[in-house]
């Protein structure tokens, strides 16, 4: 009996700490949005994907940038379910809107802002994070300093909009004030029963850092309009593909 009471007290205290650390949404709006990331729930504080905070994605190559954007698009599809528009800031945008349809996002609901440099991108991001009617703000940029990320974190703590900083080919990987740092890489696509051809997209999701959570590595695929977790045994099949023979 005493043990249960103790646990309860510890849980309450933990939640209080989370609120102080800026995880307001994680505590209050639990189970509000289902991202379908059940297999990695243990990694997140309170077992909920943190919203109303800033996530950082790092991609060193153009191919991994596409993978990161794919993963972000998967997250956006849940965030945009409330039919709020999303803002996409980028300095050298190559995102092709029609492809977002695959991720259940209506491409016309995304407002693209094309800027010329990182400074402008950060300014636009800070302004738009202030706007509560947006579902999320994605910024594709190069380098961000710690102080700049702190500013953004302060803004989202007030407004509760989720932000994604996608750093493409950063010169240095410096620690930021964001709650998480992700690296998304391509993995062999998944085809059921090893059918030939390019299958559903699969990514190796590496959660390098998460505040109050446990970092880890997972394989996620995307089909049927949701994230699908790929267990290692499923992967072993697709990871060693046979070179297809022609002629």
């Amino acid at each position: 009996m005493e043990g249960i009471a103790k646990k309860e007290i510890i849980k309450q205290l933990q939640e209080k700490i989370l609120v102080l650390e800026g995880f307001k949404k994680a505590v209050s709006a639990r189970n509000d949005l289902d991202f379908g990331l059940r297999a990695m729930e243990d990694a997140f504080p309170c077992r909920v994907f943190p919203t109303g905070v800033i996530h950082e994605f790092i991609s060193p190559t153009a191919a991994s940038a596409t993978a990161s954007n794919g993963f972000i698009a998967g997250l956006l599809s849940t965030l945009m379910k409330k039919e709020k528009p999303c803002l996409w800031v980028s300095s050298k945008r190559s995102l092709y809107p029609p492809a977002l349809e695959l991720f259940g996002i209506a491409p016309h609901q995304i407002i693209f802002v094309d800027v010329t440099g990182d400074k402008e991108a950060l300014w636009v991001m800070e302004q738009s994070l202030n706007c509560r009617v947006l579902s999320a703000v994605v910024a594709e940029l190069g380098d961000v300093s710690f102080a700049e990320s702190q500013r953004l974190q302060l803004v989202v703590e007030r407004s509760g909009v989720t932000g994604f900083i996608h750093r493409k080919r950063p010169r240095r990987v410096t620690p930021l004030a964001c709650v998480s740092r992700w690296r998304i890489r391509h993995a062999m696509s998944y085809t059921p029963d090893n059918l030939p051809g390019v299958g559903h997209p699969v990514w190796e999701v590496h959660l390098e850092k998460i505040r109050n959570g446990k970092p880890g590595k997972w394989h996620w695929g995307w089909w049927g309009g949701q994230f699908v977790h790929l267990c290692p045994d499923k992967l072993s099949q697709s990871i060693s593909p046979k070179r297809e023979r022609y002629a």
């Binding site: 709020k84 491409p107 693209f112 802002v113 094309d114 300014w123 706007c131």
Partner: peptide, 27 residues
């Protein structure tokens, strides 16, 4: 959308005033 469109319009105005008119695209 259900979002308050005036707030978004105001945000767009801010962005346009700072970085120029041809920066915002929707498709």
């Amino acid at each position: 959308s259900r979002g308050d469109s005036t707030e978004i319009a105001e945000l767009m105005d801010n962005i346009v005033a700072k970085i120029g008119i041809n920066t915002i695209h929707r498709y």
